[in-house]
Every structure is written in structure tokens, then in C-alpha cells.
Nucleic acid binder design. Structure first.
Lengths: 207, 207
DNA sequence: TATATCATGTAATCGGTTACATGATTAA
DNA sequence: TTAATCATGTAACCGATTACATGATATA
């Protein structure tokens, strides 16, 4: 079997360009951190790599935007080839998710942990996940002001959502559903962390 | 800062040796697939790499077990240096979990998906996650018969769990808690998949 | 004064996956 | 007869992270 020329992260960047309209690598990094953090993470260096890859594939094109006293912005937009690639990707089966959570390993081997050390790790995770939950609840939907909606934007160009006043008014239902995912998963995780912390603290007591 | 000489996967293998007693690389791979799948995955090649790494660190030692008509088994056991490393790891802060789920990317950019393609992916994920749930419910606890419990096993060697009849009788509480994690997360995921599938099918109807 | 933001890239490293390699036994 | 299981490893590749590199402006 041939190696694929693109990867999930590639389509993450491509999807953002299709969804939000033309923007720079820097903008994409911001959006990745704000919108895609519950699904996929990326360092800025990787985003620039993917943009390079996609230019070679003719999935995106670049226009230089000159600025005084700052480095020029390179604004990328999706091409029709890119649009087709995005749809093609949607037709392919998705790789099933594999968790890689170090905290779970530490809990699994909790027998070998000083209880206070494990409790400390659980509390740290609680803080982190509660912060995430707050952020998701505050609304992943709100689009950062920097990125303008161009004519390539989802609202005018979606090939599959019918154009009605309802869909025009409402926030994107898929984005809403992703936000919901992030929220319910964080809630479940947090509840479990509380349970686990209680368990660890009880073991601590009985010593 | 220095690069660490070991990684989560390293401690996954080390933890299994501490928890279950001495075993071969092949056994470890089986256990990884059966016990650690909700936390971390590993190819067999990587497990052999980690064993090599840990031998160099003196965290494990190897004894050859000769067999007729089959390749010799190399049985690894944790050393006292390894025990110390495992405890040291528990004292270090854990990296916070980052999700990388391709299906979520596809849902996020669902506007660009032919509805039937997205629905198909959601149904495939439902089957997969429901199978996982069944497996987790059936009991991750049940230890495969191949691996014997040696004297290095958790029940006799846990430095932090007091030796009582209660803990002796009960399954390991940490393992139970991991099983619980796997179950509640799968349940939440599945519920969300149903919701999302319904949404996608309704959009489909309105066309 | 010092950190954060804006803005784009390259280089080095490495964990993790896939493919390659071998070969006997056993169950469908 | 085909595939799975037992059993261990090496080699190639690559996605992803970290560090290196530059430099102006604005805010604390």
C-alpha cells in the first residue's frame, strides 16, 4: 500500500482554511489552539510544514501581504483541488482513537506510588481539566476577531448543508457538537478524578 | 534540561513487570493489549526496544528459558534499581493528556462531508467503541492464564498498600479504577456518537 | 525592565509505526 | 491449506516536539 501524502493534521489545517477562510500560518496556529485543542494539537513549526506540503500538492495557494515594521504575512487559501481533497478525506474511514494518557499509567501502577505523590498528580490533573471545562463552556464557538470571514467561508460555501435562514443564524452544528463532546468528556474525566482522589486519600488514611 | 532516559511507555513495561511478575517480551505485548489498551498502546517492536533500554539502565534483568521446537523465551524481571525508578517516576508530575482523534476532526469539518460518508464513519466508530465497552465490562481484571504470579508480584511486594485480608481478597483497587475509567469514558463517547449520528441523519433528511 | 504578541521559518531529535525477517506448531 | 499462535528481533520511515534563529512593537 502506498503511503498517504497527507495526515490528520494536514486535513486539520486544510479544514480550517475551508471553514474560516484565508489566513496566515500564525492565524492557523491560534485557531488550532482555540478551536481544535479538544481533537488535535500542533506546534507552529508543524503547521508551516503542512502548509508547505499542501502548496506542493496544490491544495492551497499563498498571497503575500506586506506590512510595515513587521514580517510580511503569508495568507493561504484553499484551492478547488484542496476542496476536493477535503471531501475525499471525509469519504475515507477514520483511524480509531488510541488514548495515551500518562496519568492513567500512574494510577494503574498506583500500588508503587507514595500515596501523597499520586494524590498530588491527581489534584494537578483536576485543576487542568477543570480549566479546560471552563474554557469549553465559555464557548469554543466564539471566533477570534483577528480572522475575517472571507467568501470562501463555510456559511456561503458548504456543499452539503442547505442554505436556510436557520443554518445562517445558528452557529455551525458540527462545531457545537464538538464543543459538546469536549464538555461531556471533561465532565466525565473530572468526576472520575474526584472518585480516584477520594480512593487514594482513603488508602492514605488507613495507614 | 536533560532528556529523560525513559518515557511513559518505558514505565508501562516496567510497571507490568512489577505488577505481574517476571515475563517475556511476548507476554508483555499480550498484557499491553489486554490491560493497558485504555491508557497506552505499543507495537511489539517497541516493547523489545524498551526492554533493551531498561537492561542498559539495570532496571530489569533477563534469564533465558530454553524450549524445544520453539524460540527460547527471554524472561525479564524487575531489579531493585527498577523498583526505585518506578517509585521515582510516580513522584514526577505527569504530562497532561492531549487527544488526537481523527473522527473528531471529521465531525468538526462535517460541513464538507457527504452526509452518508460521515454517518458511515460514525457508525463504524460506534461498533468499535461498543466492542471496547463490552470488553471492559467483561473484566479487564481477569489475568490471562499464561502469566504466572511470581514472588515479585504486587500482592506480596506493594510498598504502599497495607497487607490486609481485604486487599488480599479484593482485586487491585487501582486496576478496578482504571477499568471504571475505561467504562465511563466509553459510555460517554458512545452516547455522544449516538447524538451526533442522529444529528447527521436529520441533516440528511432535510435535503 | 521584562515579558507577551506578531510573524515565519529551519534543524535536530526521537517516539512510535510499519515493514522486513525467520520458522515451527496448531487449529479451522 | 490457510491462518493464527508462539517467539524475537532489525531497519526504515516519519509525525511531532523542542530548540534555534530573528526582530519589531506594545503592555505590565
Amino acid at each position: 500500500m502506498e503511503r498517504p501524502e497527507a495526515y490528520p493534521i494536514t486535513y486539520g489545517v486544510l479544514g480550517l482554511l475551508a471553514f474560516m477562510g484565508p489566513m496566515s500560518g500564525y492565524d492557523i496556529k491560534q485557531l488550532f489552539d482555540h478551536m481544535l485543542s479538544p481533537m488535535w494539537g500542533a506546534a507552529h513549526s508543524q503547521i508551516y510544514n503542512e502548509l508547505k506540503r499542501m502548496r506542493e500538492l496544490d491544495w492551497v495557494e499563498m498571497q503575500r501581504e506586506e506590512q510595515e515594521a513587521r514580517p510580511d504575512r503569508k495568507v493561504y487559501s484553499i484551492t478547488s483541488t484542496g476542496q476536493a481533497a477535503l471531501i475525499e478525506w471525509q469519504k475515507q474511514p477514520a483511524e480509531v482513537h488510541q488514548i495515551r494518557d500518562e496519568l492513567l499509567l500512574k494510577v494503574m501502577f498506583g500500588t508503587f506510588a507514595p500515596p501523597e505523590a499520586l494524590a498530588e498528580n491527581l489534584r494537578k490533573a483536576l485543576v487542568e481539566h477543570e480549566m479546560r471545562l471552563i474554557n469549553y463552556r465559555a464557548g469554543l464557538q466564539s471566533i477570534p476577531p483577528r480572522v475575517q470571514q472571507g467568501e470562501n467561508t463555510r456559511r456561503g460555501k458548504s456543499p452539503y448543508l442547505p442554505y436556510t435562514e436557520a443554518t445562517e443564524q445558528a452557529a455551525d452544528p458540527f462545531l457545537a457538537q464538538i464543543t459538546r463532546f469536549a464538555i461531556v468528556m471533561e465532565e466525565t474525566y473530572i468526576k472520575w478524578l474526584h472518585e480516584t482522589l477520594e480512593m487514594v486519600e482513603h488508602v492514605d488514611d488507613s495507614c
